[in-house]
């Protein structure tokens, strides 16, 4: 069974070129996510949740200064960004990037080819793709558009989940996939994530600021993230406590 193991992870973010020192964002994160499990990471703004997501994916802006991340015992931190994705890690981004001139269909075919190691079968690919678009309620005309270009916030998030469904990762990190979604979009996105969970092949790390998405995606574990580390852990009931009481009792601030 695939397991992502994060141990005592320390991460700094590069300075913005203004002569300041790199800032410490993560200070000792321990977390284990197994295939089939769903973990919610909840925390106030600025607690380092997104840094955790980007560090797992290997974004060059973040530097790991201590600790380890392994996938089935293999050192993830030694891998390049694309190697991590091919090893089975997936990051659904909070702010998906626009790539002008690269069509969605070309991108998806290239990504599936890279991750599975072989080009998708011509015979079934068109249908698989159409089905995926239909499931996420994305108009098929988007296939010929440039990646994320001119997409609304909700369309970008649905497109992230579409990629999640197509790439079938071992571990999926969803970085505030719920933010900026109206209720209808939230339902569509949650249904997509739940299909992936029900397939049982993916461990899900759901990073969120709000409890709202947890009404649609039931986590097995909830972790409270404050000040760059996990400060409390529990089952789904912990989310209810957070809903009722906020983050104050964990951080002394309202977040």
């Amino acid at each position: 069974m695939a397991t992502l193991e994060i141990k005592d992870l320390h991460v700094t973010v590069a300075a913005d070129g203004d002569g300041t020192q790199p800032r410490q964002i993560l200070s000792g994160v321990d977390l284990t996510v197994k295939q089939g499990e769903t973990h919610a990471i909840m925390g106030p703004n600025g607690s380092g949740k997104s840094t955790l997501a980007y560090s797992i994916a290997g974004h060059p802006r973040y530097t790991v200064t201590g600790g380890s991340v392994t996938l089935d015992g293999t050192d993830v931190l030694a891998m390049s960004v694309d190697e991590r994705a091919r090893a089975g890690l997936f990051l659904a981004m909070q702010y998906p990037v626009e790539v002008p001139g690269v069509s969605v269909s070309n991108f998806l075919r290239t990504a599936v080819t890279a991750v599975t190691g072989q080009a998708p079968k011509l015979r079934t690919w068109a249908k698989d793709l159409n089905d995926a678009f239909e499931r996420l309620s994305i108009d098929p005309s988007f296939k010929e558009r440039s990646i994320n270009e001119g997409f609304s916030g909700g369309e970008k998030k649905r497109f992230e989940v579409l990629q999640l469904e197509l790439l079938k990762p071992k571990i999926a990190v969803l970085d505030e996939t719920d933010s900026g979604l109206d209720v209808d979009a939230l339902r569509v996105v949650s249904a997509g994530v739940n299909r992936v969970r029900e397939a049982g092949l993916t461990g899900t790390l759901l990073i969120t600021h709000y409890t709202r998405i947890l009404r649609y995606i039931q986590p097995d574990y909830v972790h409270v993230f404050v000040g760059g580390r996990i400060v409390a852990e529990g089952g789904p009931e912990l989310a209810d406590t957070l809903e009722a009481e906020g983050y104050e009792k964990f951080s002394g601030t309202s977040g």
């Binding site: 694309d82 990037v97 626009e98 002008p100 001139g101 690269v102 070309n106 991750v115 990629q163």
Partner: peptide, 28 residues
């Protein structure tokens, strides 16, 4: 680099990702 990161985070190797971005730049 953000475009490069996005494509690589989907498993696309760096040289291929760069090609996609530059081809995309010229596509119009």
């Amino acid at each position: 680099d953000e475009q490069l990161f996005y494509l690589m985070a989907r498993g696309i190797p760096e040289d291929e990702a760069r090609r996609l971005v530059v081809r995309g730049f010229f596509a119009e």
